[in-house]
Structures are given as C-alpha cells and as structure tokens.
Amino acid sequence: MIYHTGISSTNGLSNYGTALSKVARKDITIDFGRLLLETVKFALDGVKISIKKGWLEQPPLAVKHDFFSK
C-alpha cells in the first residue's frame, strides 16, 4: 500500500509542477507552491518509513570531506 501511495505522491508532484508552470495568476501559483511543498513532505515521510522498515535502501550520502582532510 505504501508503494501505491508513493506513486500517487509522485504523480501529484508532477501535476502540481505542470500546473505551476501553466498558471498566470499569482494567488493560485502560491497555492500550488504550498501544495507542492506539502506533498513533498508527505512523500519524504513515506520514504523514511520505507527505509526504516527495510523496504527501500537508503540513498547514497555525500562524502564527508572533513574526514579526508585530516
């Protein structure tokens, strides 16, 4: 079920992004931007749950350059 929710979230993000690029009214643009951010937060929570449960691998992290400079 979480997989289907993730797919729906990415489709929603795509739709909001397309709508954001097509709308000329500033008041609606602000609403689409807000909805886009809320959907990103929702999707990120799902990814964190999937990583915690072991259903998804953690993406590669950035190299810590401080460690190599010593």
Rank of each mutant, 00 (worst) to 15 (best):
S8C: 06
L56N: 05
A19T: 04
F67N: 10
R34Q: 15
I51G: 03
T5R: 15
G12V: 08
I28V: 08
S9I: 09
G33H: 04
F67T: 11
K41G: 01
K22M: 01
L20P: 05
L61H: 09
I49S: 05
L61G: 12
A43I: 05
K22R: 09
I51F: 01
K52S: 04
I51P: 02
A43N: 14
D31E: 15
L37G: 10
S69Y: 05
Y16C: 04
K52H: 07
E57V: 08
A24W: 01
A19C: 04
I51H: 06
S14L: 14
A62C: 07
E38M: 07
K41T: 02
N11F: 15
D45V: 01
G46S: 05
P60H: 03
K22F: 00
I30C: 11
G46E: 13
R34C: 10
Q58P: 09
K41Y: 05
D66I: 11
A43F: 04
V47L: 03
L35S: 11
R25H: 11
P59F: 00
L35G: 12
S14A: 12
P59R: 02
L61C: 09
V40W: 05
A19Y: 07
K70M: 03
L56R: 09
G6R: 14
L61Y: 08
R25I: 00
I30A: 14
I2K: 06
I7K: 10
S9T: 12
V23E: 13
L37F: 15
L20M: 13
S50N: 10
F32T: 02
E57F: 03
G17M: 02
H4Y: 12
G12Y: 13
K26N: 13
T39S: 06
I28G: 02
I7A: 08
K70H: 07
P59G: 02
K48Q: 12
L37D: 06
G46D: 14
K26M: 14
E57N: 14
M1W: 06
L36E: 12
F68R: 04
V63Q: 05
